Simulated scan of single mutants.
Amino acid sequence: MKEDYYAGAYWGPRKETALECARRAELFFHMLARCDPSFTQWYRAGRGFPRELPGWPVRPDVKELEKLLLHGRHRTDVDKEVIEDLGFSQMMWNAKKEATDIHLSCGGYSQWGGPNSCLLNPTKESPIRERILRTPVLAEVLTSMATAWDPDFATATSIEMGHLIKKQKREVRVGWLTYLSRRMGKVPPLPAPVRIEPVGALGWLLILSPEPMTASNPEHVAFTARVRELLDRAGLIERPEPEPTS
Results as ranks from 00 to 15, higher is better:
W56S: 07
P57N: 08
V58K: 01
V58E: 09
V62D: 06
V62R: 15
V62N: 04
E66Y: 06
K67G: 09
K67E: 13
L68G: 09
L69Y: 11
L70T: 03
H71V: 02
G72S: 05
G72R: 08
R73W: 03
R75S: 10
V78P: 02
V78Y: 11
K80H: 12
E84K: 11
E84C: 04
D85H: 14
D85M: 09
S89V: 02
S89I: 01
Q90P: 00
M92R: 07
W93L: 13
N94I: 00
N94E: 00
E98Y: 11
A99E: 13
A99L: 08
A99F: 14
T100N: 01
D101V: 05
D101K: 10
C106F: 08
G108E: 08
G108S: 15
S110C: 13
Q111Y: 14
W112C: 03
W112T: 07
P115H: 10
N116P: 07
S117Y: 14
S117L: 12
C118H: 06
C118Q: 08
C118K: 01
L119Y: 13
N121M: 10
N121K: 13
P122D: 02
P122T: 04
E125Y: 00
E125C: 00
P127M: 00
R129C: 09
R129F: 02
R129K: 13
E130I: 01
E130H: 04
E130S: 12
I132P: 01
I132S: 09
L133Y: 07
L133H: 10
V137R: 07
L138S: 05
L138A: 04
A139I: 05
T143Y: 06
S144Q: 02
M145A: 12
A146H: 04
W149V: 05
W149E: 12
W149R: 01
P151Q: 03
P151L: 03
P151G: 04
D152T: 12
D152C: 12
D152A: 14
F153D: 01
F153Q: 03
E160G: 08
E160V: 06
M161P: 06
G162N: 06
L164M: 13
L164H: 06
K166C: 15
K166Q: 15
K166D: 13
K167F: 09
K167N: 09
Q168C: 12
Q168L: 12
K169A: 15
R170M: 11
R173W: 15
R173N: 15
R173K: 14
R173M: 14
V174I: 13
V174S: 10
L177D: 05
Y179T: 05
Y179M: 04
Y179V: 05
Y179H: 06
S181T: 01
S181N: 03
R183A: 11
R183I: 03
M184K: 15
M184I: 10
G185Q: 01
G185N: 01
G185W: 02
V187R: 10
P188Q: 09
P188I: 11
P188M: 09
P189M: 05
P189V: 06
L190Q: 08
P191D: 05
P191C: 06
A192M: 07
P193T: 10
V194C: 12
V194R: 02
E197V: 14
P198W: 05
G200Y: 05
